[in-house]
């Protein structure tokens, strides 16, 4: 069921699929142009796989959302009337926006340092950024719980330093969710931003300073505008991923803060209201597609995801 909600937490599958679709699009177009059926045969297995395991279930979700419990748009009407679903959407958007903002800020600083480092240092930095991606999201969420809980390392440390008297509420609330999600999203923010920063000629910064600009002016007038496409791309990527988070909010939110994915799971598995669950899932998918459509008009998608300039 989970795959119906676009969630990055299923592991690397989502990201690879994303890339595959990006790179498959131009080559299939080329095949059509040349009218060569052989090329079609080559991508046929991938096409069938995508249709069978990805597109068909999504269409099914769409179908259930307008047929259960009765045929019609009743489920979608609840978007306007049901306080529970509205709260889940608002919470999801709020956490998504906060996470995106923080992840972009941290990711930008990190990318900036990496982009200007020596090639050798760059490799180590990149390794440091990518290693968290290989660790299970479950492990990471529980690691944050042990760090942030009342008797956790952070609270105990602050108390032994005399900085606080009573433990801070760092987990099982929105704060904990945001910490976990930012931690997850920073690498996804770094990669597109780093890609666009690497295209910036470092001599431009030297030129700006040689022409009389301070370090800060050189950054704000030259580097920042030139890295803006990467910043926008990272923002869209992180925001879309944030909408579908499931495991991190479930563990670090302690069941008190409901985001869209968990709300859907409750509808389907606990209350068994398939119609409502699939309705919100469809809304999420549509929201993501609309965001991407708007975004693709602003920035070249293929370049953002690194599929050859």
């Amino acid at each position: 069921m989970r795959e119906r909600v676009r969630s990055p937490e299923g592991g690397g599958g989502e990201a690879t699929e994303h890339r595959r679709r990006e790179s498959a699009a131009p080559s299939s177009k080329a095949a059509r142009a040349s009218g060569n059926a052989g090329w079609w045969m080559l991508i046929l297995p991938a096409f069938l796989l995508m249709t069978g395991f990805y597109i068909a279930p999504i269409l099914q979700v769409l179908a259930i959302s307008v047929t259960e419990p009765t045929v019609g748009l009743d489920n979608y009407e609840r978007l306007l009337t049901n306080a529970g679903v509205q709260r889940a959407i608002v919470t999801t958007l709020r956490i998504g926006i906060i996470t995106t903002a923080i992840a972009l800020f941290l990711g930008y600083a990190l990318s900036y340092v990496i982009a200007l480092a020596s090639p050798r240092a760059q490799r180590w930095w990149l390794l440091g950024v990518l290693v968290p991606l290989w660790i299970s999201v479950l492990v990471r969420a529980f690691a944050w719980v042990t760090l942030l809980r009342r008797q956790g390392l952070v609270n105990e440390g602050l108390r032994s330093l005399g900085a606080i008297d009573a433990p801070l509420e760092l987990v099982w609330n929105e704060f904990g969710i945001v910490v976990g999600m930012v931690h997850y999203m920073v690498p996804y923010a770094v990669l597109p931003m780093l890609a666009s920063m690497r295209e910036i000629d470092p001599r431009l910064l030297a030129a700006a300073r040689g022409l009389g600009a301070s370090r800060f002016t050189a950054f704000s007038r030259i580097f920042l505008p030139l890295s803006t496409p990467g910043l926008i791309a990272a923002g869209v990527l992180v925001f879309i991923f944030s909408l579908g988070f499931y495991i991190t909010p479930a563990i670090l939110g302690g069941g008190k803060t409901l985001m869209a994915a968990e709300w859907i799971k409750i509808q389907i598995l606990d209350i068994v209201r398939w119609g409502m669950g699939t309705m919100l899932a469809t809304v999420l998918v549509v929201a993501i597609l609309v965001t991407l459509a708007i975004f693709s008009r602003v920035v070249n998608l293929k370049r953002v995801f690194g599929a050859g300039a």
Binding site: A207, A208, G210, L211, G212, A213
Partner: peptide, 28 residues
């Protein structure tokens, strides 16, 4: 460098790609 008041023409020119010719020249 920014305090030296030297003009410099870089190898490959290092023109700012997001600015017009006039904006490039106006930068200093």
């Amino acid at each position: 460098p920014e305090k030296r008041e030297f003009g410099m023409v870089f190898q490959g020119y290092a023109l700012f790609p997001h600015m017009t010719v006039a904006e490039n020249i106006a930068f200093p």
